[in-house]
Simulated assay, not measured.
Amino acid sequence: MMHGCENALAEPLPRRAPRVAYRSGDVATALAEYGTLAVFGFGSGTRSEEDPRWFRVALESFDAPASLELWQVDADVVHGRDGDLRWAAGGGWLFAAVDLSEADHGGPSPAATHAYEALRRLVESRPERHVLRIWNYLQAINQGEGDAERYKLFCEGRAIGMGDFFAEGFPAATAIGHHGPASRLQVYLLACDQPGERIENPRQVSAWCYPRQYGRTPPSFARAMLLPAQDALAISGTAAVVGHASAHQDDLQAQLEETFTNLEALLARGRLAPGFDTQSPLKAYVRHPADAAQVREFIAHRLPGVPVLLLHGDICRSELLVEIDGWRYA
């Protein structure tokens, strides 16, 4: 007689996190490697490729030539394209991206709605239904006053496009203003067929609980996401915010110190050892080009050997000078 436990289906092993790394070299070579889920270039000087896994981010790098960012998984990868939408999948992981002109959709709010509806429809149709991390890049993010600020309008359109898809909780996310093509909106995500664990910062109010001063629709993201195997933490855009308020206006050094205090709080809440290492790539978004050298020096001193992409980008609050996101592997 067979015991019931012998008939039980084994629980699937948690998905190992994709390997995220920065690398110099040729785009075509990176795309040809086994397991390449996505390759990102930065700035207007980056060459174009037709492969849907290639995505040129409209943020200029302060370093030349800019490194490529690679996402790789331990599996064969398939990919496709449908109008503005491109995607690639393998090993239980999904990359999907939308790159469109706001002018074609009537402004930041309807463009965000269109982008998120397209991504939501794709994810709902696939086994990789757990969106863990999203990046949003839009032009002139701080332009406009009050509720007419472009970032606030983007947040409203995003919420409409998402519908109730994230009713159980939001993914980690970044939203940065680029200085690239006028009205360009870029959104891309990483999803999995297994859920992650949302991580909040005890030093900060959760973004979806922000008070009315931050817009009719609050930002909708988790501060970080622990990936299914708990082998990596995907860190949202992190800046000098304490509670819900921006700290240290016009003081770059103090904002950097506060940002790193917030990063360490996320590592602790994610049950990871403090600090970053050479396998933990970060992005630093710097509002003013004149500040890039100071940011580079601070990070090199604080995190020697840690790979960092230094990018020209506007933070979603005009008083914030720098924001950092990235990955911390266990």
Rank of each mutant, 00 (worst) to 15 (best):
T238K: 01
F298S: 07
P274D: 07
E264N: 10
R302C: 03
L303G: 07
Q253Y: 00
V306R: 09
P281V: 02
C209V: 01
D250Q: 11
T261M: 03
V241Y: 00
P228W: 05
W208N: 12
D231V: 05
P281F: 13
G305N: 14
G237N: 06
P307M: 04
I235T: 06
T261N: 03
P218Q: 02
A232S: 06
L233V: 10
V308G: 11
A254F: 03
P304H: 04
P274W: 05
P289A: 07
L252V: 10
Q213F: 10
P304K: 04
G270H: 05
D231Q: 07
A300W: 01
I235A: 06
R271M: 14
V308T: 15
A254N: 10
L252W: 04
D231P: 02
A247P: 01
L226R: 11
Q249W: 15
A265N: 06
A292D: 07
L266R: 07
P211R: 10
P307V: 03
P289K: 14
G243E: 07
L272C: 13
R287E: 12
A222I: 01
H288K: 13
T238W: 00
P218L: 01
L282Q: 07
N262I: 08
W208G: 02
D291G: 08
P228H: 08
P211N: 13
L263F: 04
R269W: 00
F276W: 15
Q213V: 13
Q213R: 14
P307S: 03
T261E: 09
P218F: 00
F298T: 02
P211M: 06
R302L: 11
R296S: 03
E258L: 06
R223H: 15
H248Y: 14
A222P: 05
S246M: 09
P274H: 11
G275A: 12
M225N: 04
A284V: 12
D250S: 15
A265H: 00
E258D: 13
E258M: 10
V295C: 06
P274Y: 06
R302T: 12
S280Q: 10
L233D: 09
D251H: 09
A268L: 13
A229Q: 07
E257S: 07
R302K: 15
F298N: 00
A232D: 01
